[in-house]
């Protein structure tokens, strides 16, 4: 129905944020994102950011996959 897409916040103006992904810039509502900051990555769905993406957790995700690889 609506694809979710990770985008990076460039500028914030109240509940609107100018976000960017793959060279595309779009105004996205950030009504329910706690403490959004320029530079944050958010997952965008139907014009709204639904949650921040965590770089630390992403790295942990990757380490997990590495671990399985090494365990074998």
């Amino acid at each position: 129905m609506c694809l979710a897409m990770p985008m990076k916040i460039n500028k914030i103006d109240g509940s609107l944020a100018q976000c960017e992904a793959g060279g595309l810039t779009q105004d996205i509502r950030i009504d329910f994102i706690t403490d959004p900051q320029p530079g944050d990555y958010v997952m965008v769905h139907a014009g709204f950011a639904i949650e921040k993406m965590s770089e630390k957790e992403a790295l942990e995700n990757m380490e997990l996959l590495e671990e399985i690889k090494n365990a074998l």
């Binding site: 009504d31 329910f32 994102i33 706690t34 997952m43 639904i50 949650e51 993406m53 965590s54 770089e55 957790e57 992403a58 942990e60 995700n61």
Partner: peptide, 18 residues
């Protein structure tokens, strides 16, 4: 929870409040 880079254990409290 495999999708920890996005999903928190108790979700997005501000979205749930809305």
């Amino acid at each position: 929870n495999e999708y920890t880079r996005l999903v928190r254990q108790s979700g997005n409290p501000a979205a749930l409040a809305l």
